[in-house]
Computed example of a mutant assay.
Amino acid sequence: MEINENAALVVVDVQKGFEEEFWGRRNNPEAEENIAALIDRWQETGRPVVFVRHDSVEGSRSPLRTGYVGNGFKDFVEERRGKGAGPELLVTKRVNSAFYGEPDLDAWLKGSGIGQIVIVGIQTNMCNETTARMGGNLGYDVLFPLDAMHTFDLAGPFGWTQTAEELTRATAVSLHGGRFARVVSTREVLEGAAAR
């Protein structure tokens, strides 16, 4: 797999609030380890890293609300911020897509001549998927390492429920089959982004 020398790693919403029972049962306990490995590879090779933080409205019950401890990045992410040899950007948002945050992610990527993005983080079928769909629509080559993210069981309409694993599989099939993104593994991305 070819990873561009200036491919951006987009680390979505890896925040402490997702550790709370509020969300229910999650999948993929290896997600954090894989996210950390990708951040480390990007930083050691001087590639750009975008850290995205979801700022839920203050006063809401969300564990990601502004001013609450859950709004902060998980420790393993916070410890890595500012440590890379390449460019770094912090994007804050209040909706699912990182492309609707501040500052404007699309403008920053295009201004930096970046055409390839790798999306990791939380949640697979929510902010990660929405960001990947928009990235594909905007013309980016989007890579989606499925084992570097996780999600939670979810209830929907008509009494339907889906497990985190079922939601992950549906996201993978929709993104890959619909050509919004290439669904890959962390190992493939790490190998493709080996030191230059």
Score class of each variant (00 low, 15 high):
64 L>P: 03
65 R>E: 14
66 T>K: 14
67 G>L: 04
68 Y>C: 08
69 V>C: 01
71 N>P: 04
71 N>K: 06
72 G>M: 09
75 D>E: 14
75 D>I: 03
75 D>F: 01
76 F>Y: 15
78 E>G: 14
78 E>P: 07
78 E>I: 00
81 R>T: 00
82 G>R: 10
82 G>E: 09
85 A>H: 04
86 G>L: 04
86 G>A: 09
87 P>Y: 05
87 P>L: 09
88 E>F: 05
90 L>I: 01
90 L>C: 10
91 V>E: 07
91 V>W: 04
92 T>F: 03
94 R>S: 10
95 V>R: 02
95 V>W: 05
95 V>I: 14
96 N>E: 12
98 A>V: 00
98 A>K: 05
98 A>G: 07
100 Y>V: 00
100 Y>W: 13
101 G>R: 07
101 G>S: 09
101 G>K: 05
101 G>Y: 04
104 D>L: 05
105 L>K: 04
105 L>V: 00
106 D>P: 01
108 W>P: 08
109 L>N: 13
110 K>Q: 14
111 G>A: 05
113 G>A: 04
114 I>S: 08
114 I>P: 07
114 I>L: 04
117 I>M: 12
120 V>Q: 05
120 V>A: 06
120 V>N: 08
122 I>F: 07
123 Q>N: 15
123 Q>H: 10
124 T>I: 03
124 T>L: 01
125 N>E: 14
126 M>S: 13
127 C>R: 02
127 C>L: 03
128 N>D: 15
129 E>Y: 02
130 T>K: 00
130 T>D: 04
131 T>W: 01
132 A>I: 01
132 A>Y: 10
132 A>N: 13
132 A>W: 09
134 M>H: 12
135 G>L: 03
135 G>T: 09
135 G>H: 04
137 N>S: 12
137 N>H: 05
137 N>D: 15
138 L>M: 13
140 Y>I: 00
140 Y>K: 07
140 Y>H: 08
141 D>F: 11
141 D>P: 05
142 V>S: 06
143 L>R: 15
144 F>I: 00
145 P>H: 01
145 P>L: 11
146 L>F: 04
146 L>Q: 12
147 D>I: 11
147 D>T: 13
148 A>C: 13
149 M>W: 02
149 M>D: 06
150 H>E: 12
150 H>M: 07
152 F>V: 03
153 D>S: 11
154 L>A: 15
155 A>N: 06
158 F>S: 15
158 F>H: 15
158 F>G: 01
158 F>M: 13
161 T>L: 06
162 Q>I: 10
163 T>A: 09
164 A>L: 11
164 A>I: 10
165 E>T: 15
165 E>P: 14
168 T>K: 13
169 R>M: 00
170 A>V: 03
170 A>C: 03
170 A>G: 15
171 T>W: 02
172 A>K: 10
172 A>V: 02
